[in-house]
């Protein structure tokens, strides 16, 4: 390793420390006995987990956010997969419009969308409702779902569907029996994306939230703004645990997928 490479490596690992430290130091603070967040944490207690699970408001928020996230994951995956399929199978002019609109939710600031949706939902009576949050979060999640699913669709040889149809399958059967199983790992990741985007979405929920129906991110926002208690790291520990489980599940899925998908050109020597 020459000097140049050494410097590059050192710099990059410093950057990685910068990235990891805030994510990692938060976790031990969940066990702090203090009423406010300090690092290093003082003492050791599971109190904050207890408080989180016994507090009616936090539990309501958790349940509410979970409902929204599950519905968002399903809605965005179904809508996104349908559209991706049409896009990849030649949507023509409609496809160009689709792609242009798709980047909208990514580049338009969430604040702008949040305010616009707040106004719109107030008028149509959706503000603070489950449906309102689901609609808003589905809009935010769609681009990521479409990207994930269409990437997988593009890697599936369209001739496979032709082959299925020549075997007597209808277009829908060809999709369900051949294409869908092949893109399933990505469809599942897309749904996960949808779930996480919704579950962790602070801005739109901040503006849409009513007094009573608060989402988990909204409760966390208020806590950080007002008290900064160790309940935040306690939640972080729980979320990290769930994330780790999901990552392990995803890895297993990937492994299963590797056994299925055939690299088309590897075989051709």
């Amino acid at each position: 390793m020459n000097g140049r490479t050494l410097i590059l490596n050192a710099y990059v690992y410093a950057v990685l420390v910068f990235i990891l430290v805030p994510i990692l130091i938060i976790l031990p603070m969940a066990f702090s006995e203090t009423e406010y967040l300090v690092f290093p944490p003082k003492g050791f207690t599971f109190d904050w987990f207890g408080r989180f699970f016994s507090d009616r408001l936090w539990m309501q928020a958790l349940q509410f956010s979970f409902q929204i996230a599950v519905a968002t994951a399903i809605a965005s995956t179904v809508i996104g997969t349908m559209a991706s399929y049409a896009l990849v199978r030649g949507a023509g002019a409609l496809g160009s419009l689709f792609q242009a609109l798709l980047i909208g939710p990514i580049v338009v600031p969430h604040v702008a969308l949040a305010v616009a949706l707040y106004l719109f939902f107030e008028r149509v009576g959706l503000s603070g409702t489950l449906a309102g949050y689901i609609i808003a979060h589905t809009v935010l999640a769609l681009p990521f779902v479409v990207f994930t699913v269409s990437a997988a669709l593009l890697s599936v040889d369209p001739a496979l569907e032709d082959a299925a149809m020549s075997c007597g399958a209808t277009r829908f059967q060809a999709f369900r029996l051949v294409t869908l199983p092949l893109i399933l790992p990505n469809v599942v990741s897309a749904a996960l994306f949808g779930f996480i985007i919704s579950f962790d979405e602070p801005v739109v929920t901040f503006f849409l939230a009513g007094i009573r129906d608060k989402t988990l991110p909204r409760m966390m926002f208020d806590d950080i703004e007002q008290n900064l208690t160790p309940i935040i790291p306690a939640i972080a520990v729980l979320l990290t645990g769930i994330s780790v489980l999901i990552l392990i599940g995803a890895a297993a899925l990937r492994k299963a997928a590797e056994n299925r998908t055939m690299p088309r050109f590897d075989e051709m020597k």
Partner: peptide, 23 residues
């Protein structure tokens, strides 16, 4: 194609373009 893309366009028009434009 229209059927497959309709939900997407409906959602984007109703919950993205329309609210922003009316704002």
């Amino acid at each position: 194609i229209v059927f497959l893309m309709l939900p997407f366009f409906a959602l984007i028009f109703v919950a993205f373009l329309y609210p922003l434009l009316s704002l």
